[in-house]
Amino acid sequence: MPTSRQIVVNGVRLHYVEAGEASGPLVVLLHGFPEFWRAWEGQIGPLARAGFRVVVPDLRGYNLSEKPPGVDAYRVGNLQEDVAALIRALGHERAHVVGHDWGGIVAWALAIRQPEVVERLVVLNAPHPAAFRRVARKPAQWRRSWYIFFFQLPWLPERFLHRFGAWALRGTNPNAYSGEDRRLYREAWDQPGAATAMINYYRAMGRAGGTQGGGRSSQVRAPTLLLWGERDVALLPELADADGLEPYVPDLRVVRFPRASHWVMRDEPVRVNNLLIGFLSGAPV
């Protein structure tokens, strides 16, 4: 079982779990909405057994981490600085960074803005900012992104999350989330201030005009692996197209999962784990 810890970084108290050897290469796993560290339950053990030091934080606002007030506290710049500060506080200059959904957005931002911190980058079902700019204006993506506009409203999205949050956790694998998983997720959402903090990620993005960090200089220097479940109901498959990303991510590999949903690491954990271990160990994909 991973060990639960608390740390103050970038002025915010974060909860995280840790597994593996302290002397191993550091891997930081970043969850998305509406999850918390448990999103990576199927990856923590295999990565630890492969020799990595695995650290999985609850991002600010989630579960047992601190929940700063106000929308601006959840701008991408603050989120990526939390991760950079966490890596440094753990005694490392660099780390492998793996992010899914909002964790993927933060991982992209970190690799763009502080490239010296990211050894290797893995992103699951979160588009590079350049791909998002290219596709976001298409009507098909607008229709899939309806919830982003809904989350700009006051108080009503919080009600929706409390009542229908489990609805979002649906994938192609009927056993992806157990009853115990859903109970623990509801406990996390019921933490005081958690629902508003989680939704403030989207409100902050709305205030920024839908941008996720970085403009024309959105280049990622780290070797990058993009894993994409093609049955994602919120994101078009073309967001994972490598075409056009060469100037931004020159060392990019894309692996698609035709039968997986947005929750690709839950739908196909064995294949995802093998790819993660191989890529982070330096093996070709």
Rank of each mutant, 00 (worst) to 15 (best):
Met1Pro: 15
Met1Arg: 15
Pro2Ala: 13
Arg5Lys: 15
Val9Phe: 10
Gly11Glu: 10
Val12Ser: 04
Ala19Phe: 02
Ala19Gln: 04
Gly24Gln: 00
Pro25His: 02
Val27Asp: 00
Val27Glu: 00
Leu29Gln: 04
Phe33Asn: 04
Pro34Phe: 03
Glu41Leu: 11
Gly42Ser: 11
Gly45Met: 09
Gly45Cys: 08
Pro46Trp: 13
Pro46Asp: 12
Arg53Ser: 01
Arg53Glu: 04
Val54Arg: 01
Val55Trp: 05
Asp58Glu: 07
Leu59Asn: 05
Asn63Ser: 03
Asn63Arg: 03
Ser65His: 02
Gly70Leu: 06
Asp72Val: 01
Tyr74Asn: 02
Val76Leu: 11
Gly77Asn: 11
Asp82Thr: 06
Leu86Lys: 05
Gly91Ala: 15
Arg94Thr: 14
Gly99Leu: 05
Gly99Trp: 05
His100Ile: 03
His100Phe: 07
Gly104Asp: 07
Val106Met: 03
Ala109Met: 05
Pro115Trp: 09
Pro115Ser: 05
Glu116Arg: 15
Glu116Pro: 06
Glu119Trp: 10
Leu121Cys: 06
Leu121Glu: 04
Ala126Val: 03
Pro127Val: 00
Ala136Gln: 08
Pro139Ala: 03
Ala140Asp: 02
Gln141Gly: 00
Trp142His: 14
Ser145Cys: 13
Ile148Thr: 14
Phe151Gly: 12
Pro154Arg: 15
Leu156Trp: 14
Leu156Glu: 07
Leu161Asn: 10
His162Met: 15
Gly171Asn: 08
Gly171Asp: 04
Thr172Phe: 02
Asn173His: 05
Pro174Ile: 03
Glu180Gly: 04
Asp181His: 11
Arg182His: 13
Arg182Ser: 09
Tyr185His: 05
Arg186Thr: 11
Glu187Ile: 11
Asp190Ala: 15
Pro192Thr: 12
Gly193Trp: 14
Gly193Ala: 14
Ala194Ile: 12
Ala197Met: 07
Asn200Gln: 12
Ala204Glu: 12
Met205Asp: 08
Gly206Thr: 09
Gln212Leu: 15
Ala222Ile: 10
Thr224Asp: 14
Leu226Met: 13
Leu227Gly: 10
Arg231Asn: 08
Val233Thr: 13
Ala234Glu: 07
Glu238Ile: 01
Leu239Met: 10
Asp241Arg: 09
Ala242Cys: 03
Asp243Ser: 10
Glu246Trp: 02
Arg253Val: 02
Phe257Gly: 00
Pro258Val: 00
Val264Phe: 03
Arg266Lys: 12
Arg271Tyr: 07
Leu275Pro: 09
Ile277Trp: 13
Gly282His: 06
Pro284Ser: 06
Val285Asn: 08
